[in-house]
Design a protein around this nucleic acid. Structure first.
Lengths: 190, 190
DNA sequence: GTCTATAAAGCGATAGAC
DNA sequence: GTCTATCGCTTTATAGAC
C-alpha cells in the first residue's frame, strides 16, 4: 500500500469525502486510512493535531472554494449583470454537489454535535453565503429586507433540497428544486 | 441512580434527544445511560437489539407523531378548509421543533451514513410528508404538478431552515422562514 | 514520508447478582 | 427491572524502524 502524496493539500479532498460519508465521529482512522490510502503514521505526519486538525483543514478548503467560486463572484457583480451572476451561482452549486449526489459537509456538521466544535467556521460559511447572495440580489434592484429574506430562502432551500434528495435517494429532486428557485427569483424581480 | 421507568415507551423520548444531539454513531452507551438515567442493563432489557433497536424505536415514534399530528390532518382536510389545514401544519411544526431550537432527527439521519441503515423509515417519512401536503394543496385548488412542486419546496425549506438556524445559533431564523413560506402559499393561491 | 507495532482508553454488548 | 463487572473489539494516538 506504499504511496507518496508529497503534499498535504492532496490529502484534504480525500479526507473531505470520508467526513462527508461518515460524519466527524463516524470517520474512524480505519476509514480515513482506507479513504486516503495512507497509513496512520503518514496521516499524523500531515495532521499532528489528529482528526480535529483534519476536519479544520477540510472545512478551510471548502470555505476557500466557495469564497473563490461563489461568494466573491456574487459580491463583485455589477448592477447590469446581477441576474447572470446569480445564475452562475446556481450552476456552480449544482456542479459542486454533483447534481444532488453529494451532501454539504458544513450542513452535516451544522445539524450535529460537530457544530459546537467547529462553530466559527460553520457559522461563517452560511453567513457569508447568505450575505453575498443578498448583496447580489440588492444590486439587481431589490430592497435590502426582501433581498435578505430571499437569500435565506434560497440558501436554506438548497440545504433542504440536499436533505430530501438524499432521503429519497433521488438526486434529480435537488436539480429540480434548484431550477424552481431560479424561476422564482426571475418571477419576483423588481 | 436507581430508577424505575416501568415502561419502555417512557425511555424513547429521552433516547430521541441523545440521538438528535450526537447522531447514531456519536450516541455512545455512556451518553445514552447519562441521557436516560438508566444503566446499560436496563437499557438492554428494553432494547435487546442494542442501539439499532433503540434508533428504530425512536424513528417509529417520530413517524407516529407526525402521522397523527401532521400527515393525517393534512390528508383529511376538506376543500373548504384546506387553507387552514396547511396553517395548522405550520403551527404544529413550529411547536415540534421548539421554534427552531431542535433539529429534525430524520433529516440528520438522511444526510449521514445512517441513511443506509434506516433507509426505509427515512425515505417514508419525507415521502409521506410531501405527499400529504401536496394532497392538501391540491384540495385547495392547485393542479397536481404545482402542488407537488410547492410541497417539496416547503418540506425542503423547513429542513433547510433548521440547518441555517442551527448553524447561526439563531432559532428565530427558523420561525421567520416558516412565516415566509406561509405567506408565499397565500400569495400563490389559485 | 512511509510503514508496523503498540499503548491506553472507549466502545457495544453480555452475564449474573439482587 | 435494575445494577455492576467483565468480555472482546475498536478507537485515537504514539513510538520507532526503514
Amino acid at each position: 500500500m506504499a504511496r507518496v502524496m508529497g503534499e498535504r493539500s492532496e490529502v484534504v479532498p480525500l479526507l473531505a469525502e470520508v467526513f462527508r460519508a461518515y460524519g466527524f465521529e463516524g470517520a474512524s482512522l480505519a476509514r480515513i486510512t482506507e479513504g486516503t490510502g495512507l497509513g496512520k503514521g503518514s496521516i499524523y505526519n500531515f495532521f499532528p493535531g489528529g482528526k480535529e486538525e483534519m476536519a479544520e483543514a477540510v472545512l478551510g478548503e471548502i470555505d476557500g472554494w466557495f469564497r473563490d467560486q461563489v461568494f466573491q463572484p456574487l459580491r463583485a457583480v455589477g448592477a447590469d449583470e446581477a441576474e447572470q451572476g446569480v445564475e452562475r451561482m446556481f450552476t456552480a452549486v449544482g456542479r459542486y454537489f454533483l447534481s444532488g449526489r453529494k451532501v454539504c459537509l458544513v450542513g452535516v456538521f451544522a445539524l450535529g454535535h460537530e457544530r459546537d466544535r467547529f462553530a466559527v467556521k460553520v457559522q461563517a460559511y452560511f453567513a457569508e453565503w447568505v450575505q453575498a447572495l443578498a448583496a447580489a440580489l440588492e444590486r439587481g434592484g431589490r430592497d435590502a429586507a426582501s433581498a435578505l429574506a430571499l437569500s435565506e430562502d434560497v440558501v436554506g432551500g438548497i440545504q433542504g433540497a440536499l436533505v430530501l434528495a438524499r432521503a429519497a435517494d433521488e438526486p434529480e429532486l435537488f436539480m429540480r428544486a434548484l431550477e424552481r428557485m431560479q424561476q422564482r427569483l426571475k418571477e419576483t424581480r423588481h
